[in-house]
Design a protein around this nucleic acid. Structure first.
Length: 865
RNA sequence: GGCGGCUUGGCGGAAUUGGUAGACGCGCUCGACUCAAAAUCGAGUUCUAACGAGUGUGGGUUCGAGUCCCACAGCCGCUACCA
């Protein structure tokens, strides 16, 4: 395609500016210790969620968030901030390994190729990253520090009295045994039932199961020895410390619900004719008098012991059915409760009731104690189960004002205790407290807080992940010395899963077997590991002594910079973090957890990583559906760039609508913003017969005589600045369109005003604005510095003032007339004008004027009836 | 089932946070330029012939409601027997 046919020659100047930014390192960000670092400058750290470099390359969702942060970063830079806006790659991951299984190609080769593609695509969009800070989680020097942080977790325990992590060396000093210490480490080994996928050859985290099942892989439940991270110890802090963060409320709520705190009590029930008790957790201890049976999870270890011989066959059959059923869609089973009686009975501690003990799959082993007291009158699930198996239903909470309870449906709200001995007449809240006191006094139970959050299953049996820096001997694990980091995986010839849960790395015998009977841990870390701390590494990416230097850490958290930075010392390090909602829970929760551990151990100085968070909305296809290959509605950013240019793509993605909103792609919209950019171009240039662009003689280096034009320019400077601060990019672009239309229609365009406009356009369309500016510099012989180095222009408030305004005249709240009037007109003057209007008379004739509402400079409402 | 979000012209979306509903862009219509087309420039474009009506529906508060309150409906996410 010939450039003369393009509306403006972006395909010539865009690559040229990108090359210049690269060779001149225009967007290099000096940090502490770097040449050119100015500690007096306030810092601004704006971060994107880094991409997984898939084989498919960038999709249009990536540039949405990336452009938003680029605009903010460039704007803050022009405002005098030292802006850190880095980019990197979350480059471990299953697809590269799946590819290796198919082709035998080492995942490192595929990953390196994909990174090259991503880097080229990102550079083609003109983002102002400091490329010297680029990182990939697969780099040995990055892996080194990921493993180092793992060792910090391994070497720490959670001190219950101080609510924080401390080194286990403290416990050694207190004389704890090795087993005791291994039992409290934040990274520990446990046999747990996990989701194992034979064809992927790895276990999956609970939250990953659905995703891979959806892709056609099989998963099954298996008890396996796995590495776990004790995130549950941080459950309360992960909830409480959300308060200080400037995050969307919806995301905070999502995290809170995921952690799932509930308050209640544990209670122990004696098993009749059996020297043991069953412990349950309940949020409604006040309903204990209404407990008529008990249920244990089918996999509860007690079941085998308490089951009577008569019931044994039925119980075992049910357990077996549940184990194989675990893979089926549980949704289908929700309607029909199932279960089997064990033959055993427990004693209700408050009233001596004989409670049959059942097993049923509606009770989960993983939550609470894996057993419940069933109160069918006041719990929907228990009610359903009781009806199905004809178990007694006893009402103990009354929510009705009067009348006999019908018990046609469970009543799970709060009310007043009835049929409950010493609780009778108490409101639910008091009844709960009274019952807990009673249980505690009798040593039958205690107040308890329960979380849904489980410890984090941290090991995978994959190849393409960080190996654990751990060795084993005689059944004990221990850390390898820090000096041996990074510990890299050995190359393999065959990446195929063996079909057994034996990790792939165990195939590398020479790597695994060490002198003196030591063997290496062969599990690898999940992909989350690298993304848990990458934002720290950007601050000091080539440090070989520490994962981040103390100086870099304090400076980029805002504690080492100028006091005037305007950013009060905050709890979070990053000023703005932009990314998709898909990471609302997992990534953001995991990263917060790691950060808090590092904080507790004194390695970082803020308790939170991300002060402010924004979720960009999904971009849908033109058909309003999610983009997918199978639907054929995927838009490739490369195609958009070659057809319309990088500036047009950037601008369009920002013009589509509010950043946080879900919105459909419209190719016609890209044409629209491309036309806008062409209009800006043609303010300065016109095409001659030969098709070359010549400087337009409309531009003149003279003071702006056109007051209206000047007002539009200054309104634009004001609005665009304010909109960028609020992340309202779409309306900022609208305003720049209005301004461009004013330039287009003006007979003369004053040079100074036009350059001010180009300056505010620069963060949005950096290539075009720089190119126009550079050409103006040649034509008007001024110093051709880069626009991106120029200070953000101020606006002149006087230029905004209008002497006359349009006054809206309403009668009974309905618009009837509009008149031009002095902005200072008082109520009497305005009323006189309004009553003189014919249309106003039409609507007030024969009525009495009751009231006049006058908003000066805006409107006048006549209330008449 | 639970939690969250959304609902404004033919379309994407604006609306100073209670004060002109529909900015800006797309599309469409007409005009200019052209032998013609594209591109560009200019005018118009919520509906209605008009009176009027109008921000998912119904009510309320107010001089005035897209905006605040109550009830309901429809779409979209996330989550799912969490005791």
């Amino acid at each position: 395609m010939s450039d003369t046919r393009k509306p403006f020659p972006f395909s010539e100047f865009e690559p040229a500016w990108q090359a210049r930014w690269e060779t001149e390192k225009t967007f290099r960000t000096p940090g502490p210790g770097d040449a050119g670092f100015d500690p007096a400058k306030p810092k601004y750290y704006v971060l994107d969620m880094f991409p997984y470099p898939s084989g498919a390359g960038l999709h249009v969702g990536h540039p949405e968030g990336y452009t938003a942060t680029d605009i903010i970063g460039r704007y803050k830079r022009m405002r005098g901030f030292n802006v850190l806006h880095p980019m990197g790659y979350d480059s471990f991951g299953l697809p590269a390994e799946q590819y290796a299984i198919k082709t035998g190609q080492h995942p490192a080769i595929t990953t390196a190729a994909n990174i090259i593609t991503f880097r080229r695509q990102l550079k083609a969009l003109g983002f102002a990253y400091d490329w010297d800070r680029e990182i990939a989680t697969t780099d040995p020097q990055y892996v080194r520090w990921t493993q180092w942080i793992f060792l910090q977790l391994y070497g720490a325990y959670f001190c219950e009295s101080d609510h924080k992590a401390k080194p286990v060396s403290d416990l050694v000093a207190k004389g704890w045994t090795r087993e005791q210490i291994d039992g409290v480490r934040l990274a520990y080994v446990a046999d747990t039932p996990v989701w194992w996928s034979p064809d992927l050859g790895t276990v999956l985290a609970n939250e990953e199961v659905e995703e891979w099942k959806g892709k056609g892989h099989t998963v099954e439940r298996r008890p396996l020895r796995q590495w776990m991270l004790r995130i549950t110890k941080y459950a309360q802090r992960l909830i409480d410390e959300l308060d200080e963060l400037d995050w969307p409320e919806g995301i905070k709520l999502l995290q809170k619900n995921w952690i799932g705190r509930s308050e209640g009590a544990s209670a122990r029930f004696e098993i009749i004719d059996f020297a043991s008790t069953i412990e349950v957790f309940t949020t409604r201890p006040d309903t204990l008098f209404g407990a008529t049976y008990m249920v244990m999870a089918p996999e509860h270890p007690f079941v085998a012991q308490i089951t009577t011989t008569e019931q044994l066959a039925a119980v075992e059959a049910y357990q077996k059915a549940c184990a194989s059923k675990s893979d089926m869609d549980r949704g289908d089973l929700n309607k029909d409760k199932s279960g089997v009686f064990t033959g055993a009975f427990a004693l209700n501690p408050v009233n001596g009731g004989r409670l049959p003990i059942w097993i049923a799959d509606y009770v989960m082993m993983g939550y609470g104690t894996g057993a419940i007291m069933a109160v069918p009158a006041h719990d929907e699930r228990d009610f359903e189960f009781a009806r199905r198996f004809q178990l007694p239903i006893v009402e103990v909470v009354s929510g009705r004002v009067s009348g006999t309870p019908t018990l046609l449906e469970p009543f799970s709200d709060h009310g007043v205790a009835v049929n409950s001995g010493f609780l009778d007449g108490l409101a639910t809240a008091e009844a709960k407290a009274t019952m807990i006191d009673w249980l505690e006094a009798k040593h039958l139970g205690q107040r308890r807080i329960q979380y849904k959050l489980r410890d984090w299953l941290f090991s995978r049996q994959r190849y393409w992940g960080e190996p654990f820096p751990i060795v084993w001997k005689d059944g004990h694990h221990q850390a390898i010395p820090e000096s041996e980091l990074p510990l890299l995986a050995p190359p393999l010839d065959d990446y195929k899963p063996s079909g057994t849960p034996e990790p792939l790395l165990s195939k590398a015998r020479e790597w695994v077997e060490l002198p003196d009977g030591f063997v290496r841990e062969t599990n690898t870390m999940p992909q989350w590991a690298g993304s848990c701390w990458y934002y720290l590494r950007y601050c000091d990416p080539s440090n070989t002594e520490r994962f981040i230097s103390r100086d870099a850490e304090t400076y980029w958290t805002g504690q080492g910079g100028s006091a005037e930075s305007g950013v009060p010392s905050s709890t979070g390090m990053i000023d703005l973090y932009v990314g998709g909602t898909e990471h609302a829970v997992l990534h953001l929760l995991y990263a917060r957890f790691w950060h808090k551990v590092l904080f507790d151990l004194g390695h970082v100085t803020t308790p939170e990583p991300f002060q402010k968070l924004i979720n960009q909305g999904l971009i849908l296809g033109e058909d309003g559906q999610k983009m997918s290959k199978s639907r054929g509605n995927v838009v490739n950013p490369d195609d958009v760039v070659s057809e319309y240019g990088a500036d047009a793509l950037r601008l369009y993605e920002m013009f589509m609508g509010p950043l946080e909103q879900v919105k459909p792609w419209q190719m016609k919209g890209v044409e629209g913003v491309s036309r806008f950019l062409a209009r800006v171009w043609r303010v300065a240039f016109e095409q001659d017969q030969a098709g070359t662009w010549q400087m337009s003689n409309k531009i003149a280096d003279i003071p702006c005589a056109d007051k209206e034009l000047r007002r539009v320019v200054h309104e634009t400077i004001k609005k665009v600045g304010e909109d960028i601060e609020k992340l309202n990019f779409n309306t900022a672009i609208s305003q720049m369109m209005i301004c461009t239309n004013a330039f287009t229609q003006a007979a003369v365009v004053p040079l100074a005003e036009f350059i001010q406009f180009l300056t505010i356009l620069n963060p949005f369309a950096p290539h075009l604005s720089e190119e126009v500016h550079a050409r103006l510099a040649v034509a008007f012989k001024f110093q051709p510095g880069q626009l991106s180095e120029v200070a953000w222009p101020g606006y002149d408030p006087d230029a905004l003032v209008r002497s006359t305004i349009e006054l809206i005249i309403q009668v009974n709240g309905k618009l009837r007339e509009r008149v031009m009037i002095s902005k200072d007109a008082d109520e009497a003057a305005a009323t006189a004008v309004a009553l003189g209007c014919a249309k106003v008379k039409d609507h007030t004739d024969g009525k009495t004027i009751r009231k006049i509402v006058y908003i000066q400079g805006k409107l006048l409402n006549i209330v008449a009836s």
